[in-house]
Simulated assay, not measured.
Amino acid sequence: LKNNEIFLYSNTEMAMMYLTKCSPRSLYHSILYSSSTLYLCWNYLTDAVREGRNQHERAFGVSSGDLFGAVYRSDEEMLSFMQLMNSIWNICGEDVVMAFDLSPFKTIYDLGGCSGALARRCLTAYPGCCVTIFDLPKVVRMSREHFISQEDEGISFFEGDFFRDPLPEADLYILARILHDWTDSRSLELLTKVYQRCKTGGGVLLVEALLHEDNSGPLTAQLYSLNMLVQTEGRERKTSEYAALLTAAGFAHIQVRRTGKIYDAILATK
Rank of each mutant, 00 (worst) to 15 (best):
I31L: 09
Q222S: 15
V140M: 08
F163S: 12
V204S: 10
E236R: 08
V71C: 04
R177E: 08
I31Q: 06
Y9A: 11
R186E: 02
H253M: 04
Y126Q: 08
P218W: 14
L1R: 09
Y242R: 12
R58Y: 00
I31P: 05
T107S: 13
F163D: 15
L8G: 03
S149C: 08
C114L: 10
S156C: 08
A48H: 10
D161I: 07
T269H: 14
F134K: 11
D47L: 03
L223V: 11
N11I: 00
G234P: 10
E233I: 04
D214V: 11
E233V: 03
T20A: 00
T200P: 07
E169Q: 13
L136N: 06
D75S: 07
R144F: 01
R257P: 01
T132W: 04
C122W: 01
R25S: 00
A252R: 15
T12K: 05
E233M: 09
E151V: 04
K270T: 15
C22H: 03
S36W: 03
P24R: 05
L206Y: 07
A244E: 13
G65E: 02
A243I: 11
S26A: 01
D47K: 06
G217V: 03
R121I: 07
L118Q: 13
N54Y: 03
G160F: 07
A252H: 13
L226D: 12
D161W: 01
R120C: 02
Q255L: 11
D66S: 00
E236L: 10
I6A: 07
L205Y: 12
D101V: 10
A125F: 01
K21F: 00
C130E: 08
H56N: 07
T259N: 15
L246Y: 05
F147H: 11
E94L: 02
P24W: 00
L223R: 15
Y28C: 02
L111N: 05
Y195P: 05
G69W: 00
G112K: 06
D165K: 14
L188W: 01
E76N: 06
N11D: 03
E145C: 08
R164P: 02
L210P: 15
D181V: 03
T192K: 12
G217F: 04
R257M: 09
H212S: 15
D264S: 07
Q150S: 07
I174V: 15
L123T: 06
P168V: 11
T37F: 05
M17F: 00
C129I: 15
Y242L: 08
A221L: 14
G93W: 05
I88N: 05
L219D: 15
F134M: 13
I133T: 14
G93E: 03
N4L: 01
A176T: 01
I91N: 13
V207G: 11
V131Q: 13
K270Y: 08
L219I: 11
P104M: 06
I6W: 01
K199P: 11
V207E: 10
R141F: 00
F81Y: 12
L32M: 05
S34R: 10
S225N: 14
H180W: 05
Y18G: 04
A265V: 04
L175I: 15
I108P: 11
L40Y: 07
S156T: 14
D181I: 03
R177D: 09
W42F: 03
G154E: 02
L175V: 04
F158T: 09
K238H: 09
P166D: 12
E241M: 06
F134D: 15
R141L: 02
P127T: 07
M142T: 08
H56F: 10
F158C: 15
G61M: 09
E189A: 00
V96D: 07
